[in-house]
Design a protein around this nucleic acid. Structure first.
Lengths: 150, 150
DNA sequence: ATGAGATACTTTAATATTAAACTATTACGC
DNA sequence: GCGTAATAGTTTAATATTAAAGTATCTCAT
């Protein structure tokens, strides 16, 4: 009876875990993107080029959903990529609400050069963990990301 | 012989794990801060108020190191907090290079009200994982954050 | 004491990010 | 067909973020 454990220790464990998750993610993410920054690309710009490389032509709405960003944000990042001549942006006759975004030759060369290095960086950085630990971490993140509560 | 496994599968596991880590962290972090946004505070502003609550008076350099942000960033966020009357910023006679930052009464009331709710949010959100899973995740993140390689 | 270098902070220019209000185009129920 | 909804994208205002260059102050070796 009466042993309803409103424990601070439960909360403390959650806070600990949360802060470690934030810090580790920030650290890994920053390091992994170093070769991207070195090419004068921002993380967002790289994300869009990568999506276009792997998925082909996309409209801005599709890109926004894929990268979990707002529409206004995509408008701006795309326009900066257009200025750098890395992507093209054009309306077609079908549905005049859409802009279709695609890699230019220059953009394709850049992302085809960068992506393999990026993947190697991730592999190298994640190899601090054993393969088993990586599987474990992936599974915990999958479960955490789903948010069954609420 | 020759079974040096340069496997794509190793890389694929690392990429999978990495992307799940990013997504889960982003999801948890955004949700957890909802009550902060609802009070009209940004995440950065909240972070500074929280540091001041738990550590007392700090100078901007200490805050920058604590939150892993650039000095220029702290200057701006602090100035916005000053405008809102939530923190004070003053030079003292000792070493005139430092600005000392502290909570105002208004700031203290706000963060003392907000922090417990924030901690509850984290506890609730993290409880998607069992206590054992939280310990595991914390440990994996600790290991990952250290970056033994390189 | 003084001058070189370290330390704390600011400013600027660029990019990112969102919410909210806006324009343009299409879809659809009647 | 027409008016209302929905959809795609833009713009604006606010905040965040960094690197790099700049200012002010202090430290310390000579």
């Amino acid at each position: 009876m009466g042993s309803h454990y409103t424990g601070d220790s439960e909360q403390q464990r959650a806070l600990d875990c949360f802060i470690k998750l934030l810090r580790a993610t920030e650290s890994v993410n920053t390091e992994v993107h170093k070769s991207v920054y070195a090419e004068g690309l921002s993380e967002s710009q790289f994300g869009i080029l990568e999506a276009l490389l792997h998925l082909g032509t996309l409209n801005q709405n599709q890109i926004a959903k894929k990268l979990l960003k707002s529409g206004g944000n995509i408008t701006l990042v795309i326009d900066n990529l257009v200025k750098q001549g890395l992507v093209s942006k054009e309306k077609r006759s079908e549905d005049r609400r859409f802009y279709w975004i695609d890699l230019t030759d220059k953009g394709r060369r850049l992302i085809e050069h960068l992506f393999p290095r990026h993947a190697e960086n991730i592999e190298k950085r994640m190899s601090v963990l054993t393969p088993e630990e990586q599987m474990q971490l992936g599974e915990l993140c999958r479960k955490l990301g789903k948010n069954n509560k609420q």
